[in-house]
Design a protein around this nucleic acid. Sequence first.
DNA 1: CAGTGGTCTAGACCACACC
DNA 2: GTGTGGTCTAGACCACTGG
Lengths: 264, 264
Amino acid sequence: MEAPSTRKWGKVEIAADLRNQINHDDYEEGDKLPTEEAMRETYGGVSRGTVRAALDILTGEGLLLSKRPHGHFVRGRRRMTHRPQSDLQVRPSDAPKDSFLTELAEEGREPAQTIAVEIVKELPKPVADRLKLPEGENAVVRRRVRSLEGEPFLTNDSYFPLSIAQGTDAMSPVDVARGINRVLADAGHVQVRATDEFIIRMPTPDEQHRLELAPGTPVAVQYTTGFDRNGKPLRVAETTLPGDRHIIVYERPGLPDPEVDEGQ
Amino acid sequence: MEAPSTRKWGKVEIAADLRNQINHDDYEEGDKLPTEEAMRETYGGVSRGTVRAALDILTGEGLLLSKRPHGHFVRGRRRMTHRPQSDLQVRPSDAPKDSFLTELAEEGREPAQTIAVEIVKELPKPVADRLKLPEGENAVVRRRVRSLEGEPFLTNDSYFPLSIAQGTDAMSPVDVARGINRVLADAGHVQVRATDEFIIRMPTPDEQHRLELAPGTPVAVQYTTGFDRNGKPLRVAETTLPGDRHIIVYERPGLPDPEVDEGQ
DNA sequence: CAGTGGTCTAGACCACACC
DNA sequence: GTGTGGTCTAGACCACTGG
């Protein structure tokens, strides 16, 4: 896999060579790569810029991590091991429902969340498209950031028409144990249907900071829209899930099977 | 937003400036950016390498597309316009069920798919974990690539224990209109439950080629596991969805609401 | 201090699509 | 050909960490 000095080494070739060494057994997770200067010589005396371009490719794929000035290190393989998170899993409706904080505390983890409530008149476009606010009506947004063991885990911004949230616990910036749906239902707004939509994309720089994302980590953005019995949107939640910390799980119970085509 | 020549322009600053112009109204989807040489002058006479580094950042975020030698173009914002695909949407079980080909043909699009069937003894690890094949038993895999208007749309590899698929239409490399679930049910293997799991990650180089992914495009990998009434896995499907071509949609109908915490 | 990666420069050559 | 982006080079300076 080294350099027999026969090939011509460009950034793509060098990146491919390193990728092979990483995916095979030449490097273990956490290992340090040779210095840029050393690689320059290894790959036939290319310039340092070429080596760096190759390293940039791998960093962008999430395979490498740079700790200046210590060197480049192999960033753990895909951590697909992360268990499905209960707050994404759509559980049978008769399953026990607990709040995020108590639920995870029982598992011996260290959950934390921050909540801020705000009244806004400009909605993000995807939210505005779904909430379908009457012209001129304001909205309430509950912004939450959840962390596990100090690592941001997801952000969840829930938007409600002000006329619906007004005067309810949805306006208070604390955890609502009984669930926001229940709060709204008690105020006469019963959610009878919801849709989940997922968009897969690269994070914005802002999201990279808020969620402390490593380079090359994509996100799933989930839009949950809740409707009342008249089909009017009651709320829209925008949830941002770092790809390296989640497995999104849905259960499709019972017969008849929601059979689709050949079987998705 | 231009360059008052006051600031110092590095690749990060230039990328941020361009990102703003793209996210605000200065550029429309599909617009061509100035040439690298022009930007070099715009941003205080930096070197071309610096401009290119900035463009690389934005390309990595999926905001730009380079068409050599025509220039850099604004790559559509999230094309949220793409309608949810019926083969991902979980429809009410009494909804009409059509095959992928006829369904989209009616919409005036140009669907196409290739199907290959193969017997394998080595399963990908995520599939092996879910299919739980008895030691030594082989599996059948139906590999499909679906395209729309010439653009690869998804890949779907469905794995079955050989003992189950043996002698059924699941072994034939053609579209099965009545659905694979029905085929298996007719053979006595009734699927009564399924789980969907989604992993969000960057594509492998292999996937980039097969799906013709632009740089910076993440994928969702969906693992669908179907179980019979005894809880035995009947099939595992691995579906790879390019992030820029899909919105994944789930409907959660009816009361009681699958209420989750504060309302995911 | 020395060594590392992060950045920038100025210049060069190439492949390609268009005229 | 001309102009574009794609690539590579050789050199330079900086910021940071460690010995």
